[in-house]
Design a binder for these strands. Structure first.
Length: 270
DNA sequence: ACCGGAGCCTGTTAGC
DNA sequence: TGCTAACAGGCTCCGG
């Protein structure tokens, strides 16, 4: 569930707590949390390094360290990061912990255990396959048009494809298509230039709204401090099956596309 | 290029 | 009420 806005919210909350802090140790009780590195190597390589920057690429959190390497974390479905005092009570589902020199800890809680921790000396080792960053200034409608060109796939699974565009997940894909008034099954290469411009604007608008509202607390997601985001109160279609469309009143429909539940208004979206 | 399905997980929910 | 089964979903891998 954490998608671009939820990850961005997490990054913004963690940044002031981590930049300048030094890592003094790593603990892990679920080896599969570690994506491209084993615990011994991770401990040896990041011990004594400090956090230089805390940023985001797509749905990945990127922690640049003082030796040039980067710690990269993906929250996947249920991951949650928080900085707490080392003496704080142990919490269930915390499987990886980074101890800091100030006595605090960065705790990676992940009930469904899908999350991943990577160590990269070259970011491209982990992030190289990602598509464009949707809120970057160089992601223009023309770039979207070029990437849609010749693609026969339905729009919904294409938006979920991280190599097509980075950071969009199920919530924001449904919301962007509603905002663009485009049916989730529309073939990517069937869009007019005007529709592409509208879709481009819709993707950016729903992601920015999600960030402004600090994420959608629909299932497990909460901010690092444990409080809820507010985007769940601003969705138009996601998980609103059977409830009236805010624009036309027709009940929102649900279908499965690319294995994902997809919510849309059959009148508004064509 | 694209699609579908299995697998990874476990808390929550639907259904009996 | 209490149980089980299905479901949720980001991503990867597989076969077609």
């Amino acid at each position: 569930m954490p998608e671009l806005p939820e990850v961005e919210t997490t990054v913004r909350a963690l940044r002031p707590l981590l930049v300048g802090r030094t890592i003094t140790g790593v603990r892990n009780d679920w080896p599969r949390h570690l994506g491209n590195v084993d615990l011994a190597t991770l401990q040896q390589q990041i011990h004594g390094r400090s956090f230089q920057t805390v940023t985001r690429r797509g749905k990945y959190l990127v922690f640049n360290l003082s030796d040039g390497a980067a710690l990269i974390i993906h929250l996947r479905m249920s991951g949650h990061l928080a900085v707490v005092d080392g003496g704080a009570a142990p919490q269930p589902h915390v499987h990886t912990i980074f101890a800091l020199e100030n006595g605090q800890e960065l705790r990676f809680k992940d009930p469904r255990k899908f999350g991943k921790v990577y160590l990269a000396h070259d970011l491209a080792e982990v992030l190289g396959g990602l598509g464009p960053e949707p809120l970057a200034t160089d992601f223009t409608a023309a770039v979207l048009q070029e990437r849609l060109n010749g693609r026969k796939r339905a729009l919904k699974p294409l938006l979920l494809d991280q190599t097509f565009i980075a950071g969009v997940g199920n919530i924001y894909a449904d919301e962007a298509l509603f905002a663009a008034r485009l049916h989730p099954q529309r073939a990517a290469n069937s869009l007019s230039q005007e529709e592409i411009v509208v879709l481009h604007g819709a993707i950016q608008r729903v992601l920015r709204l999600g960030i402004a509202r600090e994420g959608a607390s629909i299932d497990l997601y909460v901010k690092p401090d444990g409080t809820r985001g507010d985007m769940q109160n601003a969705v138009n279609v996601f998980r609103r099956t059977g409830q009236p469309c805010y624009v036309c009143g027709r009940p929102i429909e649900r279908m499965v596309l690319g294995g994902r539940s997809t919510h849309f208004c059959a009148d508004c979206q064509i």
